[in-house]
Simulated scan of single mutants.
Amino acid sequence: MREGCRILLLDDEPLILMDLEFAAEDQECNPLTATNVREAMAHIEAHEGVTCAVLDVTLRDGETCLPVARELERRAIPYLLHSGDLNRQEGTLAELNAQLIAKPACSRRVVETALALSSTPAG
């Protein structure tokens, strides 16, 4: 594992989340997986030193990643948005001035891009 590398992965689709988790492990990072805002916020609180994050914009039950993104910004943790809902989330996307990778996308590329946003050197 990369020393201290922790990547938060927020997605409500189990297969996508699993692919991202495997891609993070392939990059020698510790993946912190979440399917909703509550789980993601719990990871942020419990794991000091989250390196970066990949956030799905639209989650189940009308949730969006906005509260998680704001908390990451407050803590100066880089993140990118990973969404297949681009036409329905224009307001949220505009509000979050973050890099976007549209779904479907190669999980390895998504994780590598998120890691590149972090200034943490590979250990």
Rank of each mutant, 00 (worst) to 15 (best):
E39F: 13
E39C: 09
E39W: 11
A40D: 10
M41W: 06
M41T: 14
M41A: 11
A42D: 13
A42F: 11
A42L: 14
H43T: 10
I44Q: 01
I44P: 02
I44F: 01
I44L: 12
I44H: 00
I44C: 02
I44K: 00
E45M: 08
E45S: 12
E45K: 13
A46E: 06
A46K: 12
A46C: 12
A46D: 07
H47P: 07
H47G: 04
H47C: 11
H47A: 13
H47Y: 12
E48P: 04
E48D: 10
E48G: 09
E48V: 07
G49W: 04
G49C: 03
G49S: 02
V50A: 01
V50N: 00
T51P: 10
C52S: 14
C52G: 05
C52F: 11
A53R: 04
A53P: 02
A53G: 08
A53W: 01
A53N: 00
V54Q: 02
V54L: 04
L55V: 12
L55H: 06
L55M: 09
L55T: 13
V57Y: 04
V57D: 02
V57M: 03
T58Q: 15
T58N: 13
L59R: 10
L59M: 08
L59P: 00
R60M: 06
R60Y: 13
R60N: 12
R60V: 11
R60I: 10
D61R: 14
D61G: 06
D61K: 07
D61H: 10
G62S: 08
E63N: 00
E63C: 04
E63T: 08
E63P: 03
E63D: 02
T64S: 07
T64L: 07
C65R: 13
C65A: 04
C65S: 11
L66A: 14
L66G: 00
P67N: 05
P67A: 14
V68W: 01
V68P: 00
V68T: 06
V68L: 09
V68A: 05
A69K: 10
A69H: 02
A69Y: 00
R70T: 05
R70L: 09
R70Q: 04
R70M: 09
R70D: 03
R70F: 06
R70E: 02
R70K: 14
E71W: 10
E71F: 10
L72H: 07
L72M: 12
L72V: 12
L72C: 07
E73R: 15
E73Q: 15
E73A: 15
E73V: 14
R74V: 04
R74M: 09
R75S: 04
R75Q: 09
R75P: 03
R75G: 01
R75D: 07
R75W: 10
R75L: 12
A76W: 13
A76E: 10
A76K: 14
A76T: 13
I77D: 03
I77C: 12
I77P: 02
I77V: 15
